[in-house]
Write a protein that binds this DNA or RNA. Structure first.
Length: 499
DNA sequence: ATGTTC
């Protein structure tokens, strides 16, 4: 598709389509599908050249009715991270790329009554130590509680938050999870041993993962108290399911699905319902994972601050679910790096604790920037009831490692009083410089009338998986054991010499 | 995001 409009041209068309709060993009490449870019003029000007191709991809799934782009948008698998794709539930597709590999990935936020001043430097460090004791950080991290049996995992992924909360006192209440339980049909089987090896999930419940996943201790304003925020997903389990269904979609339609990233199923596909079951199972895993972390972190918090944490909310930003949109009717809403934002009175909130005020929306910034708890407004109808899921990357991982100085970055965090892990080593490819300023991104959301700011959260302590540090440690261990071997050999030689 | 490059 080398005949797509060039960057200058599509951005000019988008600018010309300026509406209240967003840019409407209509081009020869996108057909009749409405495309709304919730960006400021600055964010649109700075948008990656690759964005247009991915927007066109998003508009071309069968039955697409709306594409909304959130202000933290950046390059993703097939379609942008930061996109909302609504397809018709009559005959439209469900697609894997528009959900992402980390099915059910999302946020959890908890609050306390502890005044923020109580979090001295030493206590910030102690909090990180206590969390590290209980929660494995980084990719490949295994649960401190050992592996689940397949039967126990089945219970988690079919029973969801509802089942977990009923069994675990202190895990929160049903209304504090976005979805109590996403239904999985009894006839669906986990593809154990399949392409993506979802069995990896057996020992990963209650683990954080790597990349942009994190645990953060924060000061909330205007509350003035301590908050804790978590970003994590369905770990190897969801990744395995996603991989499995990407492959099946391509096998099913080899001629239509040339690019595996753009795979999808239509209602006549053999795997259509199965994929929806897999998404539900992955999401249930992710939600329970966040609840397990909530319990572990509450324990750590109690140890240091002698108080409990109270769950504020838990919400996914990588999901496809059935929704009824007031203007578009029955749709499959795919949110990939986009957070659901139902305002007061939304039909899907009826009967929940959020019916009269809308549910909280949890949006993180980098670990040296502000995060937010937002409250959706009626204007969110325009974005398919969605907002951004973060600040959005602006520096690639490779570039970050090349251009940033480890010492200088560590010093910046130390100066700002932010304790990173327990070794004060900031993962460079996740540091503040890698992300857009979160205030700028939130401004686009507030300016468009999608949500209002309820709480602004300032980082005090940050826990992240750190691959570089782990590699270094492995190297040190390797060198150390080599030295010990040499020493032992030397002693042996001396011994032999003497003997 | 990820059994951190099938």
């Amino acid at each position: 598709m080398s005949d797509l409009l060039d960057t200058e041209e599509w951005k000019r068309l988008a600018m010309a389509g300026k509406k209240e709060g967003y840019f409407e993009l209509a081009t020869r490449d996108t057909g009749a599908v409405p495309i709304r870019l919730f960006l400021t003029e600055k964010l649109l000007t700075e948008a990656e050249p690759t964005l247009y191709r991915q927007i066109v991809n998003a508009s071309r799934f069968p039955g697409t009715k709306l594409v909304a782009i959130t202000p933290d948008v950046h390059y993703g698998y097939g379609v942008p991270v930061g996109s909302v794709i609504m397809t018709s539930r009559d005959d439209g597709a469900v697609a894997m790329g528009p959900v992402g590999f980390d099915i059910g990935c999302g946020m959890m936020s908890a609050k306390s009554r502890v005044p923020a001043e109580a979090a001295t430097w030493d206590r910030r460090l102690a909090f990180n130590r206590e969390v590290e004791k209980r929660v494995a950080l980084g990719a490949g991290g295994a649960s401190r509680d050992g592996a689940l049996s397949k039967r126990e995992l089945e219970e988690v992924i079919r029973g969801g938050a509802e089942h977990w909360i009923a069994k675990h006192e202190g895990a929160g209440s049903r209304d504090k999870a976005e979805r109590h339980r996403l239904p999985v049909r009894d006839t669906w089987d986990v593809p154990w041993g399949g392409k993506g090896s979802p069995e990896r999930g057996l020992d990963q419940l209650g683990t954080l993962g790597g990349g942009n996943h994190f645990v953060e201790l924060q000061r909330g304003e205007p509350s003035g108290t301590l908050f804790v925020q978590v970003h994590t997903g369905s770990r190897g389990f969801g990744h395995g399911l996603a991989t499995n269904y990407f492959e099946l979609a391509r096998e099913e339609r080899p001629n239509e699905i040339r690019d595996i990233d753009l795979g999808y199923f239509t209602p006549d596909s053999a795997h259509f319902e199965d994929y929806l079951d897999a998404v539900a199972a992955g999401a249930n895993f992710a939600i329970v994972n966040r609840l397990v972390l909530f319990e572990a972190i509450t324990e750590a918090f109690r140890k240091v601050f002698k108080e409990d944490l109270e769950l504020v909310y838990e919400i996914s930003h990588n999901l496809v679910q059935a929704e009824d949109h007031p203007e578009l009717g029955a749709v499959w809403t795919h949110r990939k790096g986009a957070t659901r934002a139902f305002p007061a009175g939304h039909p899907m909130l009826v009967g929940t604790a959020w019916e009269n005020e809308g549910h909280p929306v949890l949006v993180p910034g980098s670990n040296r920037d502000t995060s937010y708890i937002l409250r959706p407004l009626a204007g969110a109808v325009a974005s398919g009831f969605s907002v951004n899921h973060g600040a959005g990357r602006r520096l690639s991982r490779g570039e970050a490692k090349r251009v940033l100085s480890q010492e200088k970055v560590n010093e910046q965090y130390r100066r700002d009083g932010i304790v990173v892990n327990t070794d004060f080593e900031v993962p460079l490819d996740e540091s503040n410089a890698c992300y857009k300023p979160s205030a700028e991104v939130i401004e686009a959301v507030v300016g468009a009338g999608l949500a209002r700011i309820e709480e602004t959260l300032y980082p005090l302590a940050s826990l992240k998986g750190n691959d570089e540090a782990r590699k270094k440690e492995a190297h040190r261990d390797h060198e150390k054991s080599k030295k010990e071997r040499d020493k032992a050999r030397g002693a042996e030689r001396r011994h032999k010499g003497r003997g």
